[in-house]
Amino acid sequence: MPTPNPAALEFLLSRRSRPAKTLIGPVPTRDALGPLLEAAARTPDHGKLEPWRFIVLEKPALTRLSILVADMAAGRDLDDDQRQKAINQYANADLAVAVISSPKDSPKVPHIEQVYSAGAACLALLNASLAAGWGANWLSGWASHDPVFRKRGLDLADHEVIAGFIHIGTEKTAPPERPRPDLDAITTWVTE
Rank of each mutant, 00 (worst) to 15 (best):
A20C: 11
G135Y: 03
T188G: 08
D80C: 03
I112L: 02
T22P: 03
R150A: 06
E10N: 14
A86V: 09
I55F: 11
R64P: 14
T191C: 01
A174K: 10
C122R: 03
S129T: 04
T173G: 01
A124C: 02
L183N: 08
P4I: 14
V27T: 15
W52Y: 14
T22W: 13
T188W: 07
P28D: 07
T188S: 11
L9T: 15
R152F: 02
R30I: 10
T188L: 13
H167R: 04
I162N: 10
Q89M: 11
R53W: 05
I112V: 01
A98F: 02
V27G: 10
R64E: 15
V69Q: 11
S101L: 01
G75W: 12
P6Y: 14
P103E: 05
D77Q: 14
W142K: 09
L183W: 09
H159W: 09
D77Y: 03
L139N: 06
L65W: 11
D184I: 01
R150M: 09
S140C: 05
R16A: 08
K151C: 04
Q114F: 01
P181T: 06
G141P: 12
A157L: 15
I100V: 12
E58Y: 14
D105A: 05
A128L: 02
D77F: 06
S102K: 08
F11Q: 12
L156W: 08
P26I: 10
A32N: 08
A8M: 14
A70N: 15
G119T: 00
D182N: 12
R16I: 04
P2Q: 13
P181C: 05
R30V: 12
S17Y: 06
A163M: 06
R83I: 12
N88W: 04
S101F: 00
P51I: 13
W189N: 08
V99F: 02
T29K: 07
D155P: 04
T63L: 15
A132Q: 02
S117W: 00
E171N: 09
N92P: 04
P19C: 08
I162C: 06
G164H: 04
G169E: 09
A74Y: 13
S106K: 00
G164P: 01
E58M: 12
T22I: 04
C122L: 00
P176K: 10
F54L: 11
L57N: 13
G141K: 04
L37S: 06
R152W: 01
D77L: 07
L130T: 01
R178L: 11
S140I: 04
R53C: 13
I100Y: 00
D155F: 10
L126G: 03
G135F: 00
L123P: 00
L183I: 08
E192S: 12
T22N: 09
A39V: 07
P107C: 02
A98Y: 05
A136Y: 02
A86D: 15
A131Q: 07
A157R: 15
W134F: 09
A40I: 06
Q114A: 01
R150L: 03
I87Y: 09
Q82G: 11
F149A: 10
G75Q: 14
R16P: 06
L33W: 05
R18K: 08
A124I: 00
H167K: 08
I166T: 03
E113A: 03
R18W: 11
S106C: 02
P6G: 07
V99H: 04
L123D: 03
P60S: 13
S144N: 14
L62Y: 13
E38N: 13
T170F: 01
I168Q: 09
P4M: 13
A120W: 00
E171S: 11
E192G: 14
P51D: 10
G135P: 01
